[in-house]
């Protein structure tokens, strides 16, 4: 039961993150407002000022330059705030088959995890999980949505916001 609860909370937190991302996108013209509301070291700080997710090309798990830049910032942040443990959630878009996408999501989560470890975050602080194509954040029927779903999201397990 404990385990189940933990996962449920994780899912809820992911929902919160998704909403915050949306707000952050809206506030792009007012960066001061966005950063001003997130106290350093909080979950909100991580999502808004660092970026909690990286994106992948279709059927790929190679980290793009942009993904590496985000993960560099994540590693710095996690090294600074060393009390956090994280779960890297790997996801795939809906344009693949279920079983393969579970493995593809795992491969993406693993690529992000390996990069964080290579940049100093202890492996013991990082867990990975794959949701395959089961947890899309964008639901339209073209690549503007599918590209958002091909992602690895670093979720803080013990964030207080």
């Amino acid at each position: 039961m404990l385990v189940v609860n933990k996962i449920a909370q994780g899912a809820r937190f992911a929902g919160v993150v998704a909403v915050m991302m949306f707000l952050a996108a809206c506030a792009q013209t007012k960066p001061d407002l966005a950063s001003g509301t997130a106290a350093p070291g909080t979950g909100q700080d991580f999502v808004v000022n660092v970026g909690d997710r990286v994106f992948f090309l279709e059927d790929q798990s190679t980290l793009t330059a942009q993904a590496r830049a985000t993960l560099d910032k994540q590693a710095q942040w996690l090294n600074r705030y060393s009390s956090y443990t994280v779960t890297v959630e790997g996801h795939a878009d809906e344009r693949g088959t279920r079983q393969y996408n579970l493995a593809l999501g795992a491969r993406r989560a693993n690529a992000a995890r390996d990069y964080l470890v290579a940049n100093g975050v202890p492996a013991a602080r990082i867990k990975t999980i794959s949701y395959g194509k089961e947890r899309p954040v964008a639901v339209c029927n073209n690549d503007s949505c599918w590209s958002q779903n091909r992602r690895a999201v670093t979720v803080l397990n013990n964030a207080t916001n």
Partner: peptide, 9 residues
């Protein structure tokens, strides 16, 4: 079944 091991299954 498949077992995920790092980036491989």
């Amino acid at each position: 079944m498949s077992l995920q091991q790092g980036g491989n299954a």
